[in-house]
């Protein structure tokens, strides 16, 4: 086990940021912590990176206790905080060089590990970090977090504020790092990124809702989900919410995801009801649950 978390609770003045959190991350796993802002993701990261002390519970990273052995953890983990924490007034190369130096290593020594990421930003190595685009900052921050060849990598919302192309490239990089044997714990508010992890924990309001592989989590959703669409979205949502048998009604892009309370639900019946509400162009099709559906069902 690379990361062990047992019964961790943490509260600030008034807020219970984390409530009795327990899970484990296997060595070499790409583990995702999925939840909205304020769910407690950053607090958990800070406890695991020895920046905060939990009120209750124990945790260990790479076999070291986060409190008693914090110095060993600091030597063995890479951490990329929420906002890409770089020195804006230093160049790309100076940033990397600085982080290499404070970890007692050099860029050359671990160049293999960062090579395929660094070559993408190398053309800009003399540019100040403050002048980089979001995607390039993200890559540089990742290089800085990797430069000392950590055993465990903590990435706190690495894809927030980054465009889809950079996001995709970033996840491809993580997959390659994972193949090199690095354990990765990554947090994100984007449900669509969950599918890219080996296992995920859904977190909201300081509580873990579910932990499993993305495929298994989706299977936990037992009710059949229907994609409903009609000519007027606003009236469609209102009508479905007013339908006496509805279990859940959530807008989902161009559709509404609808589940019914009855086990013998007949879509034709719903169509008749919607028509009675003066809606037209009605389509009702069965669809598969997504991580987001599961999340909402669990958080309900």
């Amino acid at each position: 086990m690379s990361i062990k978390i047992a019964n961790i609770s943490k509260s600030y003045k008034k807020v219970n940021a984390l409530k009795n959190i327990s899970f484990e991350v296997k060595s070499g796993e790409l583990f995702g912590l999925i939840g909205p802002d304020g769910a407690g993701k950053t607090t958990l990261f800070r406890i695991l990176t020895t920046l905060l002390i939990a009120n209750e519970g124990v945790a260990s990273v790479a076999g070291f206790d986060v409190i008693t052995d914090y110095k060993s953890i600091r030597k063995n983990v890479g951490y990329m905080p929420g906002k890409f924490s770089l020195y804006q007034d230093l160049t790309v190369e100076e940033n990397l060089d600085f982080f290499a130096t404070i970890f007692g290593t050099t860029i050359e020594e671990n160049y293999d590990l960062i090579k395929d990421i660094y070559i993408q930003i190398e053309p800009f190595k003399n540019r100040r970090a403050g002048k980089l685009s979001g995607g390039m900052k993200q890559k540089l921050a990742l290089c800085c977090a990797l430069i000392h060849k950590p055993k465990v990598l903590f990435l706190d919302e690495p894809t927030t504020g980054v465009d889809p192309v950079s996001r995709k490239e970033f996840w491809e990089m993580l997959k390659r790092l994972q193949q090199k044997g690095i354990t990765i714990l990554v947090s994100t508010p984007y449900m669509d990124e969950a599918a890219l992890c080996d296992r995920i924990a859904l977190i909201q309001g300081g509580k873990i809702l579910e932990i499993d592989t993305p495929a298994a989590i989706v299977k936990h959703y037992l009710k059949p989900i229907y994609n409903v669409s009609a000519n007027n979205m606003y009236q469609l949502v209102n009508s479905l919410k007013a339908y006496e048998y509805n279990h859940s009604v959530y807008p989902f892009g161009e559709f509404v995801h609808y589940t019914d309370r009855r086990s013998d639900f007949n879509p034709a019946e719903l169509k008749v009801y919607l028509e009675s509400k003066k809606l037209s162009n009605i389509t009702i099709e069965k669809t598969v649950a997504t991580i987001e559906d599961t999340f909402m069902e669990l958080a309900k």
Partner: peptide, 13 residues
Amino acid sequence: ELGTMEILLVSPL
């Protein structure tokens, strides 16, 4: 403010 202090703390310095 920059958040770099977090990284410095999580380093062997």
